[in-house]
Structure formats: structure tokens, C-alpha cells
Amino acid sequence: MTEKTREDSAEWVERIVRIRDNKDEAAFVEVFGHFAPRVKAFLMRSGADAALAEECVQEVLATVWNKAALFDPSRASVATWIFTIARNKKIDALRKQRRPEPEDLPWGPESEPDQAEIIGLQQESEKLGAAIAALPEKQRDLIQKAYFGDLSHSEIAEQTGLPLGTIKSRIRLALDRLRHAMDQR
């Protein structure tokens, strides 16, 4: 393992610790920005369609947010832990769909990205963080409850007293704004 790889690994462990100990949203945005596209690509390479891969990515990253305390750096790297969660989520989703399970699912982290990819992903993570911060407060609050708080739309409605349709509309508008902000280059 090179010095740079060890440093990167230590940085990812540090981010998971910040998520675990402080529910640090900035650390989560960095983890999400880095791992979400890799997990989606991994799932699609292992036979998942785009919709299933997207669904699994959301569940994987929600699990990382909610179960960061279960990560043990002495047992696995952050990447291996996240890709193992992804593999298990995909298997669970396939079982729910009652599809036959492929015998040999390839899994594990893909090769390390080059420096240009790392810089690009860091810039995208910063851009996403800024886009979330720029959302109107009502939309930002619902996005945080849905994605960082791992609450369903119904649970948010119970918690806020807002109608379910209002919650869905605001979240949809917020996601559209985030998509638009991320598409601006």
C-alpha cells in the first residue's frame, strides 16, 4: 500500500468517525459524493438495472449514515465495508423481487481513481454541499430529514404536521434544484 493510499484510507476512516460521532453532514456529503457513483457502477456491472442500482445506492448510503458505529477499521477498509453493504443490499433487493440469484457476483472496490478523478469528485462534493445549503429552508429541512435523517415521507408528515403531498412536492422541487445546480458547470 502506498503512502498516498494509506493517507486516503485514513481520511475516509476519519470521515466515517465524524459521521458516527457527530452526524457530520459535510463528511457524509464527501462520502456520498465519492462512493455513490462507484457503488452504482459496481451494482450495474454485477447485473442490476439502473433503477435497482439507484435504489440500492440510496439504501447503502443511508446505512452508512445510520450505522457508522458498526464500521471497524481493523477489519476492513471503508471502501470494502461500503461495497459489502452494497452487495448485501443488492442481494436483499433481488430476493424481494424473487429473482434467481446469480452464483458468482463479483464484488469489491474498483481500482483507485486517478488524481483528476479525485479532484473532480471533491469539487462535485463541494458543489453538492453548496447546492444543499442554497436550497430554501423548507426544502433543505425536508431533504435533510429524508436523506440524512432516513425518514420516510409519511414519517416526515407525522413529525412536521405537513400534508404528505406538500412534503413530496417540496422534496421533488428540492431534488430538481439540486440536479439543476449539479448540471451547471
Rank of each mutant, 00 (worst) to 15 (best):
Q115V: 05
T160H: 08
R179T: 03
T166R: 14
S154R: 13
K23P: 00
D183T: 06
L128Q: 04
D183R: 14
K67G: 07
L43R: 04
I82M: 06
W81D: 01
R179P: 00
L178A: 08
T80S: 12
T160L: 04
I171D: 09
I118W: 11
D150H: 13
R98N: 13
E101S: 04
D24I: 00
W65C: 04
F42C: 15
E110L: 05
F32S: 12
A62R: 12
V31T: 13
L151K: 15
K138Y: 05
P73I: 02
R18E: 13
D141V: 11
G149F: 01
Q97E: 09
P106W: 03
S77P: 02
F71E: 10
A76D: 00
Y147D: 05
K89R: 15
E110G: 15
E3Y: 08
I132H: 08
R98H: 11
I16Q: 11
H180N: 11
A79D: 04
T5Y: 09
Q123V: 06
R98D: 09
E7L: 13
D72E: 08
A50G: 09
N66C: 05
I143F: 14
N22W: 03
E155P: 02
R20M: 02
L151V: 01
V29T: 13
V17T: 12
V60S: 07
G108N: 10
P113N: 04
A157D: 09
V57F: 06
Q139G: 04
V57Y: 09
L173S: 13
E101H: 10
K168F: 00
K90D: 08
R15A: 15
R98K: 14
A93S: 12
A27Q: 08
D141I: 07
T160Q: 05
S154V: 06
E30N: 07
Q58R: 13
A157F: 04
E117N: 01
L105N: 06
R172P: 00
A41R: 15
S111D: 12
L135E: 06
I171W: 02
E117M: 02
I143S: 11
R185S: 04
G129E: 03
F71S: 09
R177K: 14
H34S: 10
Y147R: 14
Q122Y: 06
N22A: 05
A53D: 04
E11Y: 07
R18H: 11
E101N: 02
L173A: 14
P109W: 05
I16Y: 07
P163R: 14
A10K: 13
L175P: 01
S154P: 00
G108M: 01
F42S: 15
